[in-house]
Write a protein that binds this DNA or RNA. Structure first.
Lengths: 178, 178
DNA sequence: GGTTTCATGTAACTAGTTACATGATTTA
DNA sequence: TAAATCATGTAACTAGTTACATGAAACC
């Protein structure tokens, strides 16, 4: 699960409580992700039992106690290992979002492996775009003359095309700069 | 759940079996979605018990029997009702994908209501893009001079920006043509 | 003789959402 | 005085994934 790894990256940069992590998510990986605090608490509990993180309870004045999580050596090793592995995730967005986490985490693992995964996903997306382009040419040879259900279907296909174009443009940028 | 409604649209256009639906998904809503056959079978079973669809077993020569599903009047009513409702879905992609289903389904409900939802989501995405642009300006005033963790963070933010730009471009196109 | 296609399903699991609960403090 | 912020959690649910099972036919 990439949520585990997203949390690991965030905690590598700065140890913190589940609550803080939830807030940080809104302004970093949150561009691709949203995790509710329940999901984060649950995942943290699992990570603790797998000893990827260690916990220190911190008492506060006038505030509830907080549990500050810190990445363990095993957690760092797990992160580095995951970064080098081929991209996981079933759906298209799952893979893109996992890659985003890996890019964010690149400093904690093998950057070259991340670059390879960027290139691979770029090609996957390009292949998909080619398929969509082919479908468009065959099914909608005159896109400006469409009405009714054909128009609606074409608009959805266009959305697929735009999505692929966007993903490819970004992945090309990453390839160049990473 | 929008899978129910995606299935309703598909069955409105053409009655068919769960297997056929799974294949059709790969080449229509599939630009935004992937549903495994198990998910489809399970959802169909639920829809049958809610009487949104009716089933006719069809014997075949040399092939296993199939169950052909057909949308009931209640199913059509449910679809029309859902189309007019405000967009549901927690995450950003959930809402975009649900809107794609509604665009595809526009002919079975209130097109004007869909247009309004397109405009609303467009504005939501534009607002998000503005936030990202703001973050970029504040945190990365000189994007070409970045290295290490800053570079990685910026690349992820760029991905968020590209995603929003893509979504906005598509929604503008839909606004214009729908 | 092995893979793909057609067709449905059970079972077990992981991921993600929604609702509810607690309780003090700060801000409007 | 009502809402928001800080901080954690239980419980129940919905959505989505992965693995396994069956069995005939068509294709290579």
């Amino acid at each position: 699960m990439a949520l585990t790894h997203a949390i690991l990256v965030s905690l590598c940069e700065q140890s913190g409580s589940g609550y803080e992590l939830a807030r940080r998510f809104d302004r970093s990986i949150g561009y691709f992700w949203t995790a509710t605090h329940q999901q984060i608490y649950r995942t943290l509990a699992g990570m603790e039992s797998e000893q990827l993180v260690s916990v220190t309870p911190v008492a506060q004045q006038g505030r509830p106690d907080k549990k500050v999580y810190k990445v363990s050596p095993a957690g760092r090793a797990e992160l580095a290992h995951w970064i080098a592995e081929p991209l996981d995730g079933a759906g298209m967005d799952a893979r893109l979002r996992n890659l985003a986490v890996k890019i964010r985490a690149a400093g904690y693992g093998d950057v070259e492996a991340v670059r390879a995964q960027v290139a691979a996903l770029r090609d996957e997306r390009a292949a998909r775009l080619a398929v969509y382009r082919g479908l468009e040419a065959r099914q909608f040879p005159d896109p400006d003359a469409l009405t009714g259900a054909d128009l609606h279907q074409h608009l959805v296909l266009l959305g697929g095309i735009r999505t692929e174009q966007g993903a490819i443009a970004w992945l090309d940028e990453v390839k160049e700069k990473l």
